[in-house]
Nucleic acid binder design. Structure first.
Length: 312
DNA sequence: AAGACGAAAGTGGTTGA
DNA sequence: TCAACAACTTTCGTCTT
């Protein structure tokens, strides 16, 4: 591509659109540009331009040079197929005539059709784009997206999607990944981000876990507490107390059979009270997505059982 | 007046026959 | 498939700060 065309390439971002900071880091392991100030993902799907081999002389260099981008589980053909570019100039950088443009468009259209002609491929492509959409809404990191993609692939390979909705299986895969990565996303949030009924996602989730033989431990209240405290804008002492409470709660096995969000909310309530930054039950209930009644029941229980144990 | 409390009835999911 | 069950929610009247 000639110089003047190169100049048309997307401009390299210099500062974070979120916080305005200029400490941007390229992380090739997860293929992202991340702001070191606020953690905002500025760009993703980077291609590592460098070679993964070493050459010690010209001969080796010539031998080892080859082309091709790294594969990605997030594209339905793992990014291995050829794609016709979007631009309208030839290899010399000269513009195309209207007829040539028309031809190019037809080529693109047909290539797209051929690439996605197999129904399995098509549903896989759909599913992977859904993962990407939902993951954007939920702010999920790369590894979770990739993991979810792998699960969907496994499901497709094992013919587990037959008779079920692709969207449901996709959402379930995301949920499995979140649970495995110990991310505090509830089934409800994922169902919402994917526009599917919570019940359906739950059903497909249980089905996939069973069929693919996953072992997923129940979520721990501690996973939810950190996010809850962030949403409520409290740190410091309250945070410390909340975690202390949860450690004791776990030791005394008070979590058995109880919803982790309820326990997290109750611990937060107690901690905010003791830490001198009191939040109302309603505030916490709203953030934790449980009712005030549940907070009351849990926190009474915790206070009763922990009173003699915790030295706060 | 806002927040907390608790009783009572209702809901949705799990379990075991 | 169905009933029993525990956890949780909804609702609402009452008490406390």
């Amino acid at each position: 591509m000639p110089e003047e065309k190169l100049a048309k390439a997307p401009k390299i971002i210099q500062c974070c659109p979120e916080c305005g900071g200029n400490r941007l880091m390229r992380d090739y392991d997860v293929a992202e540009i991340v702001c070191m100030g606020c953690g905002f993902v500025v760009a993703e799907k980077l291609t590592d331009e460098g070679p993964e081999w070493c050459a010690f002389d010209r001969e080796q260099m010539a031998k080892r040079t080859r082309v091709g981008a790294p594969t990605s589980p997030r594209v339905h053909d793992k990014g291995l197929s050829t794609k016709i570019g979007w631009f309208y100039w030839d290899i010399y950088g000269k513009g195309l005539s209207p007829e040539q443009r028309y031809q190019l468009n037809r080529l693109r259209k047909w290539q797209h059709r051929i690439r996605l002609s197999d129904p399995t491929e098509r549903s896989l492509a759909f599913s992977l784009s859904e993962i990407s959409k939902a993951a954007d809404k939920l702010n999920l990191p790369k590894n979770v997206r990739d993991g979810a993609s792998v699960i969907v692939r496994k499901a497709a390979k094992g013919r587990l999607i037959r008779g079920r909705s692709v969207a449901g299986i996709t959402a379930a895969a995301i949920y499995i990944e979140c649970r495995q990565a110990k991310l505090s996303r509830t089934l409800e949030e994922i169902a919402q981000a994917s526009n599917i009924d919570k019940k359906d996602v739950g059903r497909d989730y249980r089905f996939l876990v069973k069929e693919l033989g996953y072992f997923i431990p129940p979520p721990e209240p501690a996973q939810y507490v950190t996010r809850l405290l962030n949403q409520l804008n409290v740190q410091g002492t309250v945070e410390e107390i909340a975690h202390k409470i949860l450690i004791r709660t776990k030791e005394l096995k008070l979590t058995a059979g109880r919803g982790p969000t309820g326990i997290a909310a109750a611990a937060t309530y107690i901690a905010s009270y003791l830490g001198g930054d009191k939040k109302t039950q309603r505030e916490i209930a709203e953030m934790a997505k449980v009712t005030e009644v549940t907070i009351r029941n849990r926190y009474k229980e915790l206070v009763r059982r922990l009173m003699f144990v915790v030295t706060l």
